[in-house]
Every structure is written in structure tokens, then in C-alpha cells.
Design a protein around this nucleic acid. Structure first.
Length: 452
RNA sequence: CGGGGCGUAGCGCAGCCUGGUAGCGCGGCGGUUUUGGGAACCGUAGGUCGUAGGUUCGAAUCCUAUCGCCCCGACCA
């Protein structure tokens, strides 16, 4: 036996928290990410992810991977640095403008730090796939991207370097590609729901990627960059735990229709007349943070780049494609914008880096130390990643730290409770506490966090 | 890129106008007393005053250049 890992004890963890707000941070998620020791700025719009922030980021990636693979999509990894050749071929090298970071290597070759990967994936596809029999195919990766924003701001919400899941579907026909579109809509709805977010699909603008079919997913938050207009009926919809067959064309289309029929648009595509037709009591105007977007763009890249397959009738046709993105690093900011109070972050259970915090009120007391050690060991065994505050600090300081970093559940162990054989379990979100035996606390949390 | 602001200790700031060799709060370290919501007291460490040049007997302070960062705008996942 090797025993429980010790690196989730605060006495060993690297968690540089700040009591005061750093001057450079304006919005709440940026302030809290700095204060709670999630990130440190490396330069404008570029951040280092400290252990706690990295843990959240990894957790979000994990959820994205699980949901993509559940739908049959294939994970892979493309490089951050790309050759300009492919971009010249698609015509976007000129179109993209200054936001693309252009680099020259030692041989004076034009390179770039990829802002997205349509060209690269299309190149991979055309070199390897020739037959309709290899379709449909959806490939995706989660990789760092760079967009040289004129003015980065709001921390990771609008950084220059950002982590993004981007996926690409290749289909024989438009109908097939539209199923891929709907299927992605469903995977995205599931993904956000698991993260504890209400992300509303809204009809969007094609932007530089282009395409007529496109929706973006917005999380409602006061600090959102876009003004949004929607029918309150849309926020009542949930996917819940319904059984989904991702190959079922009708089921995926039905879900897409269910979630996109109620009016929901950003200011870019807003239509006053349609909005006015909604019953007044259901009309909502708010602000939203974009956390993902899906596109169907047909043969926009396959045609100029020659990504074709041979059909049953021996004809060579360009494939129908779409792309789909989730702003993973930006989601950390969006999650905090949507889940915080004046004391700090309140992580939804699904994404919390440490779903349970253990606070030992009297470090060095044989009774509390024993109970805390036992809780720590058992929670690790249950796979719940507890964070044990075993520092020799005062109660107030320990509580403040737990509140700041947002552990959704806290187990407080003090001499008073030990005398009566109880510990205290507190919900970060509601602030409600309940006393129970240590065994009952473990049972309760194991149940609560079972389907994390 | 246009407009504005700021770079002084890990964080938040004062000092600059009116030059004289750097200070406060928090944090750190040691100690004592504390111990259920960011404790009190005592002691202590820590600063190329963004960088370069200039003016001056003397520059954090004045001048010039430069780099970085932040805010508003246009732009954007």
C-alpha cells in the first residue's frame, strides 16, 4: 500500500491566494481567478495556469472529451504552429488580417500560430480519404489557439492565447452534414449541462469561418459581451438524462428543433418583428457570454482545397463539412461569471477542482487531526478529490480560503463537534450546514457527487 | 489603431507638483498571547523606484527616448 497522495493538503498545495484585488482585473471572473490562485498573467492576454486553475481546465477538457466520444467523434491533436501554405491555398491567409500571428522561421518560411484548424484538417483528410465508404467522419482536438487581439481584456474571457475544442465533420451530402450539425448541437447541450451551465443556442452570424447554418451557445451573465434577446421558454428546456442515440437522425433533429424553435438571438441577428411576436411576459433581454459555436459550411474548404471522395457512382465530389468549437479556457471565466458571490467562486459540482474541502479547526488536536485524516483518506478512495486544509491557521482564514476557491461542499471538523461525534457539512451555494457523523458525511457526499 | 491612465517590496498604495538618497497597509519570517468567519502585540527580512540616456553637486521626483500594463472606442471565440 502506498497510502493517500499528500498533494491535496493545503500545507503542500501551491495555492497563492490574494486578499486584495489586483489592480489590472476589472471583471469579477478575472479578479477571482487571480485572487483564488487559478492563473497569473504572463503578458497581455496570455496566462499561466496554476495548479488549481489547471485542474479546472483539465476537468472541462475531460467532460468535453467524454461527450464528444460518446457521440462517436474521434480525438486527435494538431499542432499550434502551422505553415502558411495551406492558408494561402484556402485564401484565408490574406483574409484573416492582423489577428493572425504570423511568424517567420529561420529558413524565412511563412508560419503562423493557428487561430483555427480548418485548413490543416482538410489537408489531412484529403491525403487520407478518397472513398464515400470512409464517411461520415468527425475529428476533433483540444488545443491552444492564438488570436492577436488588438485589445485583450477580461482575463481568460478574451485572451490572445486560448484553449479550444474544435471539431470537423466530413460528410457525403448536405443531409448527412446537417445530421452532424444536429448531433453536435446535442453534444454541446449535454456538455454545458454537465458543467452546470445554462447555455442557450442562438442563431448566429457566419463570421470569418462562413456558413449559413450556425448557432452560437451563450451563457447568461451580466458581464456578457453580447446583448441577447430570447423567449423565456428556452431557458426552461433541459436535456436531463434522456437516452440519446447519436446515430438517430430523427432524434437529433427533434432535439435541435426543440432547443432552437423558441426565439433566441444575439444583437447580430436580432429581428424586432419576430421578437415582438413573443408574448410580452416571455420576452427577455439580457447579456450573454459566447462559449461555443457550430457551423455547417458545405464545400467552402473542400472545394478549393480538393477534399473529395468518390461516390457509389464513381463520381468525385467535394465533401460537406462543418466545424464546431467550444472555448474551453474561456469557459472557466464564464463559469465564474455565472457562479460566484461576494466571498468568491461557487463551482458547480460537475466542474469543481476540489468538490469537497475539509477544514480542521484545531490543527494539532489529536481528535480533529484523526477525523480529518480519516475523511481525507476515505474521500480520496471514493474518488472525490478532497482538499484538506491542514494548515496551522485560524478558522476564519480557512473558511475564507475555502469560500474563495469555491469548494461546493465543506466538511468542518472542530473539537466541539468531535466531542459529540459529529462533523459539519456545509453547502457553499446555500450556506446551509448540517451536523452528522463522519461516516454519514462521506455517504452523503458520495451520493451527491456520484454522477459527477 | 485613436483617446486616456499607470509602472515605487509578493499584493494594494503614498511620496513626484515644490530634487537632498524611499514609506504605509496587507502578506512573509521568528516569538508571545490567542483559536468556529481573513486575530493582537513585539521583533525581523524584503525595493535595480520599468529600462536607457540627459540636466544637476545631488534624480523615484525635472527632460528625452523606449518597453510594459490597464481603461474607453473600433474589433472579436
Amino acid at each position: 500500500m502506498t497510502g493517500a497522495p499528500k498533494n491535496m493538503r493545503l500545507s503542500r498545495y501551491f495555492l497563492p491566494v490574494l486578499k486584495e484585488n489586483p489592480a489590472e482585473a476589472q471583471i469579477v471572473s478575472h479578479r477571482l481567478m487571480l485572487r483564488a490562485g487559478l492563473i497569473r498573467q504572463a503578458s497581455a492576454g496570455i496566462y499561466s495556469w496554476l495548479p488549481l486553475g489547471f485542474k479546472v481546465l483539465r476537468r472541462l477538457e475531460e467532460i468535453v472529451h467524454e461527450e464528444q466520444q460518446r457521440a462517436g467523434h474521434m480525438p486527435m491533436l494538431m499542432p499550434t504552429i502551422q505553415s502558411a501554405e495551406l492558408w494561402k491555398e484556402s485564401g484565408r491567409y490574406e483574409d484573416y488580417g492582423q489577428e493572425m500571428l504570423r511568424i517567420t522561421d529561420r529558413h524565412k518560411r511563412d508560419m503562423l500560430y493557428g487561430p483555427t484548424n480548418e485548413e490543416l484538417i482538410t489537408d489531412i483528410f484529403r491525403n487520407a480519404v478518397n472513398s464515400y465508404k470512409d464517411l461520415p467522419l468527425t475529428l476533433y482536438h483540444i488545443q491552444w489557439k492564438f488570436r492577436d487581439e488588438i485589445r485583450p481584456r477580461f482575463g481568460v474571457m478574451r485572451g490572445r492565447e486560448f484553449l479550444m475544442k474544435d471539431g470537423y465533420n466530413f460528410d457525403l451530402t448536405m443531409e448527412d452534414a446537417l445530421h452532424a450539425y444536429n448531433r453536435h448541437m446535442v453534444t454541446y447541450l449535454r456538455t454545458y449541462e454537465r458543467m452546470g451551465l445554462k447555455a442557450i443556442p442562438m442563431r448566429a452570424d457566419g463570421g470569418p469561418i462562413g456558413g449559413d447554418y450556425t448557432h452560437e451557445f451563450l451563457v447568461l451573465a451580466e458581464t456578457g459581451e453580447s446583448e441577447v434577446f430570447y423567449d423565456s421558454a428556452v431557458t426552461d428546456l433541459t436535456l436531463g438524462d434522456r437516452d440519446i442515440d447519436f446515430d438517430d437522425v430523427d432524434q437529433c433533429r427533434a432535439i435541435m428543433e426543440e432547443f432552437t424553435t423558441p426565439y433566441a438571438r444575439t444583437d447580430e441577428t436580432h429581428d424586432e418583428a419576430l421578437f415582438g411576436a413573443i408574448p410580452e411576459e416571455r420576452r427577455r433581454t439580457a447579456r450573454g457570454i459566447e462559449v461555443g459555436q457550430i457551423f455547417y459550411f458545405g464545400t467552402k474548404y473542400s472545394e478549393p482545397m480538393g477534399a473529395t471522395v468518390v461516390t457509389e457512382n464513381a463520381e468525385r465530389v467535394p465533401v460537406h463539412m462543418g466545424s464546431h468549437g467550444i472555448g474551453v479556457s474561456r469557459l472557466v471565466g464564464a463559469l465564474i461569471e455565472a457562479n460566484h458571490d461576494e466571498k468568491g467562486i461557487i463551482w458547480p459540482e460537475g466542474v469543481a477542482p476540489f468538490p469537497v474541502g475539509i477544514v480542521n479547526l484545531k490543527q494539532g488536536d489529536a481528535g480533529t487531526d484523526d477525523v480529518c485524516e480519516s475523511l481525507y483518506g476515505q474521500l480520496i478512495k471514493a474518488g472525490l478529490d478532497p482538499l484538506y486544509d491542514d494548515r496551522n491557521e485560524r478558522a476564519g482564514s480557512k473558511f475564507a480560503t475555502m469560500d474563495l476557491i469555491g469548494c461546493p461542499w465543506r466538511i468542518t471538523v472542530g473539537p466541539r463537534g468531535i466531542k459529540n461525534g459529529v462533523v459539519e457539512v456545509t453547502s457553499r451555494r446555500t450556506g446551509e450546514s448540517e451536523e452528522m457523523s463522519a461516516e454519514a458525511a462521506i455517504a452523503k457526499l458520495t451520493t451527491l457527487l456520484a454522477d459527477r
